[in-house]
Design a protein around this nucleic acid. Structure first.
Length: 857
RNA sequence: GGGUGAUUAGCUCAGUUGGCUAGAGCAUCUCGUUUACACCGAGAGGGUCGGGGGUUCGAGUCCCUCAUCACCCACCA
């Protein structure tokens, strides 16, 4: 097959992916150890962004490497219903049509979103194919698939039976725009300028007043106490008395609680148990009533005076301040920076509101997870993430899993219509009312937090406790969980906790946390700024392999870095290099040879290239075993480009070893396949007439035998060529002749040296004349006349100075008794050896320098 | 308020447990169309490793301190 000069990925990529699917290359088939990755499922409803390319690339490189190694390898794909995310997208869609979620029942909304997702779905599957992800599509799992839902119910039931899940009225983080509660971890805290208002609360008995400081005066309608520190002498006499709450007629007690910081504000704080977490806790301790004054839509409710009802929180605040000012109750106002919780989606201020919700008692789960982590049962890349996770788990609060949205898995719980405290577990969530005996129960209208069901992802996808649990037996615990740092807490931690709780084993053995792909200038990518990079046009322009290699190159785990077009270009060039290496070799060897080529080194260069290949195989393997993707890529890149293309191919033009060229090409294609799956497979198909042979399921290369001494001999030849190139370059003396004394290896490689150094001839002599080479241990001269060579003296002088400095350093080191006595013997020996070599070389340089010096005289 | 990470060439970053003259890619400069590739080849220049102190025979690497930046966590009214 005649290959075109330039690799054009667009001509081959789709066919290659189809070939892989046709040949079922991505089904687990290895006989080695199991190695499975379950992909963090992308949102079924969204297009994949450039960050997903990084995830996909890292997982796919690991997967393809293990598959080639012969492991029983599985990359399992999926998609996320992304409950709240998707519903808010759908609500925007409704808003465009002038509708809102309130126009529909929960069932109607659910069905509409289902259709909406079905319509927009499928895009990401195409995109993942374009990215070359080698996942087994037959195992594709959607987070609303029956087995996932069933799994969530089983987990909930187990927790229900074991009293890990409870229903209770708690202060929850509520978004009044979206009308749902969130878990603590979903709230975004922002440091903001605000105000601290000082309000006078008069004592009921007229004995004076207390001044309280608050950032939220509008909640004063819900105040049920004023608290001071028990040791605060200023207020000791007030404790036990009552104050009259301004703007309402209620009297509230003054209590003592040591959570109060006497140094903050006035040291007296109003207590609003229904709208502040601290106050809620204090209220519990002192058995205070909880008065809710803000409703779920974010307006003041009927507990407030008539003129406030229906006002938004902000408006109410303004009105309260105005009124208090008029009544002389506002003592003063201060600027005050504080942290305020926001909805991560709409940025509205989160209101702490009292709600009945389902909570999971996290203590026992976290304790087990901490134990497993501290026993190092899971390896983290980078390892600092482990400690971060442990300290997160140590401070974990109970988890609110109720969400007031339609798009999700309904909670299988029903409430007795006659007895609000009577809740039962039942999976008949399709029905709103059920009857058991003479009791009627009403379904909980809420759905699970998406993270609750996806915490079971590692074993739910493998069919744990289902009719077909072979995958679970084969692949659990998973090999690797590869994901971004933003879901270390909300997802990775919970998978570990629930994995241990449900299966008794860790869900995965390794966790790799990648950094984010930032915009080219290093800032965050965001749709509103418009600096988002779409992966597909990049793939169109440069090829899928180029984007893959470009995006992983130079990246370390958990380090954010900007997207860099130059790296992608460079990777595109590398793909083209592979292509042209193949073109050259196919030209020499013929089309069909895969598997037939054997490694029988003949020339010095042959031995050398095999030594380099062996080294590279080991390097790439070692790096990939430890997930050093960028380093592995770099090792491959340098071998292919610098060693193989620039030296070996050039050398082979003088003495081609067709078999060995073919052998090396095969090895290179295999080594490069995880990084550049498309171009390597495309080439592979051109060197195989057997169309059942697929590179994706080939075997990782093994090193061939070679002679170390001969391999080292080629390093001398390289040195001679490099120095000759340098000298002839500086002196513009191309076409010189190289003389050398009796050295067989130079005789063998004379043609090669002549060609690569662009010399007229390489001739053996008894005694040479001209410019003596100093970088090789062999005796070689370039036949450059004295006058021209004198120009080279400057270069020699620099070289001599550098060499003398080096020798100075080495001698100082060796004359240091501390060094010789303390450093490892091996290191000292190396230094001695180095000194000897440096001195020899200095002698050569000196002799050469002085020779031209004397000729000059 | 706590915690973590970062600071190395013009740019983006490597540098594994302290040990050869600190590396890579891109960018820059010079030369070159030699029959795989100009998405190419040959060569060159460029860093007192953020500042200061310490440990050590030896520090980019370990310790202390200062500075700057980034991120995460946290219920200061």
């Amino acid at each position: 097959m005649k290959l075109p000069k330039v690799y054009e990925p667009g001509l081959y990529e789709n066919d290659i992916y189809a070939l892989w699917e046709r040949s079922e290359a991505f089904k687990p088939s290895g006989e080695g150890d199991p190695y499975a990755i379950v992909m963090p499922p992308p949102n079924a409803n969204a297009n994949l962004h450039i960050g997903y390319e990084l995830t996909a690339a890292l997982q796919d490189i690991a997967t393809r490497y293990h598959r080639l190694k012969g492991d029983n390898t599985l990359l399992l794909p999926g998609a996320d219903h992304a409950g709240f995310e998707t519903q808010s997208v759908f609500e925007k869609h409704l808003a465009k049509e002038g509708k809102s979620r309130f126009d529909f029942s929960r069932e109607e909304l659910y069905n509409q979103i289902w259709d909406f997702v079905a319509l927009n779905r499928g895009n990401f599957e195409k995109q993942m194919r374009r990215m070359g992800v080698s996942c087994d599509w037959s195992r594709f799992t959607f987070t609303l698939d029956d087995r996932v839902v069933k799994r969530a119910y089983k987990t909930f039931k187990k927790m229900w039976d074991e009293d890990l899940v409870y229903r209770g009225e708690r202060l929850v983080n509520f978004c009044t725009f979206h009308g749902t509660a969130f878990a603590d971890i979903e709230v975004v805290h922002k440091e903001e300028p605000g105000k601290l208002w000082y309000l006078k609360y008069p004592l009921t008995d007229g004995s004076g007043e207390l001044i309280v400081a608050t950032t939220r005066p509008e909640t004063m309608f819900g105040d049920t106490a004023v608290a001071v520190h028990p040791d605060d002498k200023r207020y000791a006499k007030f404790i036990g008395k009552t104050v009259k709450l301004p703007l309402s007629k209620r009297e509230i007690p003054v209590i003592a609680d040591d959570f109060v910081d006497p140094k903050f504000g006035t040291g007296a704080v109003k207590i609003t148990p229904a709208h502040d977490q601290n106050d809620y806790e204090a209220g519990k301790r002192h058995d205070l009533p909880k008065i809710t004054v803000i409703s779920t839509d974010g307006t003041m409710n009927d507990e407030t005076p008539e003129e406030y009802r229906g006002l938004t929180v902000d408006a109410a605040r303004g009105k309260v301040v105005t009124e208090l000012t008029e009544q002389g109750i506002l003592e003063k106002t201060e600027e005050h920076h504080h942290s305020v919780g926001h909805c991560y989606k709409c940025d509205n201020v989160i209101q702490p509101l009292l709600r009945d919700q389902w909570f999971i008692d996290m203590q026992p789960l976290a304790a087990e997870a901490i134990k497993a982590l501290q026993a190092n049962k899971i390896t983290f890349y980078p390892e600092t993430k482990k400690d971060q996770l442990v300290s997160y788990l140590e401070g974990l609060h109970d988890w609110n899993i109720s969400r007031q949205i339609a798009w999700g898995i309904p909670i299988p719980a029903f409430q007795n219509v006659d007895n609000p405290d009577d809740w039962i577990y039942d999976e008949r969530v399709g029905e709103e009312l059920i009857t058991i005996g003479d009791k009627t129960y009403h379904r909980d209208p809420d759905v699970f937090d998406t993270w609750f069901s996806s915490s079971s992802w590692p074993y739910a996808t493998l069919g744990f406790e289902s009719d077909n649990d072979q995958d679970f037996k084969d692949f659990y615990p998973l090999g690797l969980m590869e994901t971004g740092g933003e879901i270390l807490y909300p997802w990775v931690s919970r998978m570990i906790m629930l994995g241990l709780y449900i299966t008794g084993d860790i869900p995965f053995k390794e966790v790799y946390i990648h950094g984010y792909v930032m915009a080219e200038d290093g800032s965050k990518m965001s749709k509103s700024i418009g600096n988002v990079v779409d992966p597909l046009p990049v793939i169109e322009q440069y090829g899928s392999d180029a984007l893959r290699m470009g995006i992983i190159s130079g990246r370390s785990p958990a380090v954010n870095r900007g997207y860099d077009t130059r790296r992608v270009e460079d990777a595109r060039n590398f793909a083209n290099k592979l292509w042209n290496v193949a073109r050259f070799i196919e030209d020499r060897v013929g089309d069909v040879f895969a598997g037939a080529a054997t490694a029988e080194p003949e020339t010095t260069a042959d031995h050398w290239v095999l030594s380099k290949l062996q080294h590279t195989i080991r390097l790439v393997s070692d790096h990939l075993e430890e997930y050093r993707f960028s380093e592995a890529y770099e090792a491959l890149y340098h071998f292919v480009w610098d060693d193989f293309a620039d030296w070996y191919i050039e050398a082979s033009k003088s003495a081609p070893n067709a078999d060995l060229l073919g052998y090396c090409l095969e090895a290179i294609l295999k080594l490069a396949h995880p990084f550049a799956p498309f171009v390597t497979e495309t080439i592979w198909q051109t060197i195989n007439d057997d169309d059942t042979s697929v590179l994706a399921t080939a075997t990782w290369p093994k090193a061939a035998d070679f002679d170390n001494k001969k391999a080292a001999g080629f390093e001398e030849i390289k040195a001679i060529i490099t120095e000759s190139r340098f000298i002839t370059g500086v002196l513009k003396a191309q076409g010189s002749t190289l003389y050398y004394t009796d050295v067989p290896v130079l005789t063998e490689n004379a043609a090669l040296i002549s060609r690569m150094a662009r010399l007229a001839a390489v001739t053996e002599v008894k005694d040479g004349t001209g410019l003596y080479l100093v970088d090789t241990k062999y005796k070689c001269w370039l036949d450059i006349d004295a006058a021209t060579a004198r120009e080279y003296q400057g270069q020699l002088a620099e070289k001599r100075t550098a060499q003398e400095a080096l020798i100075q350093r080495l001698e100082t080191r060796l004359s240091n008794k501390g060094y010789v006595d303390n450093a490892p013997k091996k290191v000292v020996e190396e230094t001695r050896q180095q000194l000897v070599e440096a001195q020899d070389q200095l002698e050569s340089i000196k002799t050469e320098y002085e020779r031209f010096g004397s000729q000059e005289a």
